[in-house]
Amino acid sequence: MNIKKKEIASEIFTGSMADISFLLIIYFMITSAFSADRGMDFALPEDTDTPEIKQEDSIDVHVLRGGAIEVDQKALPLEGLLPYTLEKLKQNPEKPVILRTDPDATYGDMIRVFDRLRQASSEWTDVDGQPLYKDVHGNPLLGIKTISIPTQREIENLWSMLGIQ
């Protein structure tokens, strides 16, 4: 006797696939964010390798309220900051730049100046990364070696050590 096997259709039900996919898309769209993920970096000095920096041994950049700057106690436009720094570093490439900001200035004012200082490495080199300037000893100048951002408390501590009110 021939027994015919009844064939069972094997199918994966895909009717709800679109619903699930859309649900997942909506979830990822809402929870993910195109956040700002870039910025300017700087490393804080460790206690062991912090040399004592004197104001006269450095380039003192003071950001005033309103965004104007004073470099070594002289008013200077922002465009003049890097040329001035370049001339100073040609004499002594180890000179650090101290970036002080008035507490009443805004964060944006300070960042504008910090960004300008950081541009030294790209402005003082050509497109191939070759240095355009040299110091008095003939060594290439590739940028500002040290940019120090002291906090108000550190400045006050230093002033009290020096006996300045």
């Binding site: 700002a36 870039r38 910025g39 300017m40 970096d41 700087f42 490393a43 804080l44 460790e46 206690d47 950001v63 900001t101 008035d102 507490p103 009443d104 200035a105 805004t106 964060y107 944006g108 004012d109 300070m110 960042i111 910090f114 960004d115 951002i149 906090t151 108000q152 408390r153 550190e154």
Partner: peptide
Amino acid sequence: AVPYERVDAVLDALKQSKAKYIFLLS
């Protein structure tokens, strides 16, 4: 537009905490 005084206080707190690397988002 934040007054720098507040950012300075945060930087000071990070220095006190011996933080090494800081990024300023822009």
